[in-house]
């Protein structure tokens, strides 16, 4: 189809312009900001230096990065362990049930994040639902505090992102030729060995995509550590938030943002390479 340059410009121009002005320029600005320093009374001193990045790798902050990475990694791993069998089960359900089942699994992912997180406060609270349940079951001691710790943060992240991993794994399973199950069994493999030797290796791109996305969405998360960690669990997202709204050190907050984006880009790049290689190997 022949499309003129003018036509393309009219179609693409406004959208790209919007993104350029309100995403590229602001992000560029944050990048520039990260090389300046905080003024004495807040504000910004326009003195070019790498001080903020040096400060970002100070053990105090580096620890927060490590801690965030540990929590995000744990959340990603647990989400994968829950999601893989679920996605596999959906892919083995009768064809006409698959879309509704998948829709049901993914639906919460697109609904209000704050409310989904709040629901766990209701459940985990000292006076919350679970403690009352324990009481009904005959538990007599002090109510258990299940909120405001690393575990609650991991749980919140897993809860929020499991649907996404189910989707990623499911689509990598359905991309396989439906006859490979039969082919493998025809060659004498049991169902378990078919899964282990044939299906699992071919769904590695889906696994990688799921892991990377949960990790990336978690490490920069602000709401979950803020609400379920109760301010005690500091993660990178909260740190950036504090620099902007509490400490008023915008340049340092900007530097932290860029370290975060750098980590994400590396991971996404690795995942893309892996997906590409799997695709190259699978075809041909």
């Amino acid at each position: 189809m022949q499309t003129s340059r003018l036509q393309t410009a009219v179609l693409i121009g406004p959208g790209l312009g919007w993104l350029a002005l309100l995403m590229v320029v602001p992000c560029g600005l944050v990048f520039v900001l990260s090389f300046f320093e905080r003024g004495v009374y807040g504000g910004i001193d326009y003195v070019f230096n790498f001080g903020n990045f040096a400060r970002a790798i100070d053990p105090l902050y580096l620890n927060i990065f490590f801690k965030s990475a540990r929590i995000a990694g744990l959340a990603a791993l647990i989400a994968l362990l829950i999601a893989y069998p679920a996605a596999y089960a959906i892919s083995r359900a009768p064809r006409r049930h698959q879309t509704p089942l998948l829709f049901l699994a993914i639906l919460p992912f697109w609904s209000n994040y704050l409310i989904r997180t709040y629901a766990w406060i209701v459940l985990l609270n000292r006076e919350g639902f679970l403690n009352q349940g324990f009481e009904l079951l005959g538990y007599q001691g002090e109510p258990i505090n299940m909120l405001y710790n690393d575990g609650a943060v991991v749980l919140g992240l897993v809860y929020n992102y499991v649907p996404f991993v189910i989707l990623a794994i499911y689509s990598s399973i359905t991309r396989l030729d439906p006859e490979i199950w039969e082919a493998s069994q025809d060659l004498g493999a049991t169902r378990f060995r078919t899964f282990y030797r044939v299906i699992l290796p071919q769904t590695v791109p889906g696994i990688a995509a799921g892991l990377v996305f949960v990790f990336v969405l978690s490490i920069g998360n602000f709401i979950t550590p803020d609400l379920l960690g109760g301010g005690r669990v500091q993660m990178v997202g909260n740190l950036i938030y504090d620099q902007f709204l509490t400490a008023r050190d915008w340049p340092f907050g900007a530097a932290l943002s860029f370290v975060l984006i750098g980590i994400m880009m590396v991971l996404l790049f690795l995942q893309a390479v892996l997906a590409n290689r799997a695709q190259g190997g699978g075809r041909g």
Binding site: V25, A254, I261
Partner: peptide
Amino acid sequence: PMIIPDIVLAIALLAF
């Protein structure tokens, strides 16, 4: 825009 952490986009827009 789908993968930039909300917090980063938020501060970038505020700064801008």
